[in-house]
């Protein structure tokens, strides 16, 4: 697995190890993408989901499985996953842009409307992104979930933004 040799997942590897939403589902609305591919004893995503769309079951080292038809992309699991390995991808708002939501635990927290560098799994900048949402309710226990809007072709690549504001 390249993940334990490099620290990042290749998209092909992720597709092989996890069940991801299909193209149809992406077009319908926001949906969770679970990038958890290692059998570790952990299941809070299962209890976090208000719609029971994530199943870990027994033993708790099993990989989580998403029922993409039940998932509405609310993002509760994104804040709850201790591994910060769940993202929400939304390809339904326009043909040219996509939105990616991810946990963000650094200061300063991005502000809506701000432009930041959008980063891939290796931390490399791939494009600039506009922050369109920042949510941090008590339920998320101090793990804000940030949503960035990026060109649609980077939907499967962008998983973070830079720690500082960038001005494109």
């Amino acid at each position: 697995m390249s993940l334990i040799e490099s620290g990042y997942l290749e998209w092909e590897e992720l597709m092989r190890l996890q069940s991801l939403p299909d193209a149809d589902r992406y077009r319908k609305g926001p949906v969770a993408v679970i990038e958890c591919v290692q059998e570790i004893p952990c299941n809070p995503c299962e209890t976090a989901c208000p719609r029971n769309a994530i199943r870990v079951g027994s033993p708790i080292t099993s990989l989580p499985k998403l029922d993409a038809d039940l998932c509405v992309g609310c993002g509760v699991c994104v804040a709850r996953c201790p591994g910060m390995a769940i993202f929400i991808v939304d390809q339904s708002t326009s043909a040219s842009t996509a939105r990616v939501s991810f946990p963000f635990e650094y200061e300063p927290l991005p502000k809506v409307g701000e432009i930041r560098q959008a980063l891939n799994r290796k931390g490399e900048p791939v494009c600039s992104g506009k922050i369109v949402n920042v949510v941090n309710p008590p339920l998320y226990d101090r793990t804000p979930v940030v949503t960035v809007e990026i060109p649609a072709e980077f939907a499967n690549e962008v998983r973070a933004v830079g720690k500082e504001a960038a001005y494109a």
């Binding site: 697995m1 993940l3 334990i4 040799e5 490099s6 620290g7 990042y8 997942l9 990038e35 958890c36 591919v37 290692q38 570790i40 591994g83 910060m84 390995a85 650094y106 980063l119 891939n120 799994r121 290796k122 931390g123 490399e124 998983r159 973070a160 720690k163």
Partner: peptide, 16 residues
């Protein structure tokens, strides 16, 4: 190989 959980490694890789 990375010794700890891959998700922890992924988190710091994403941060560069």
């Amino acid at each position: 190989k990375i010794g700890g959980y891959a998700v922890h490694a992924a988190k710091i890789r994403r941060a560069g």
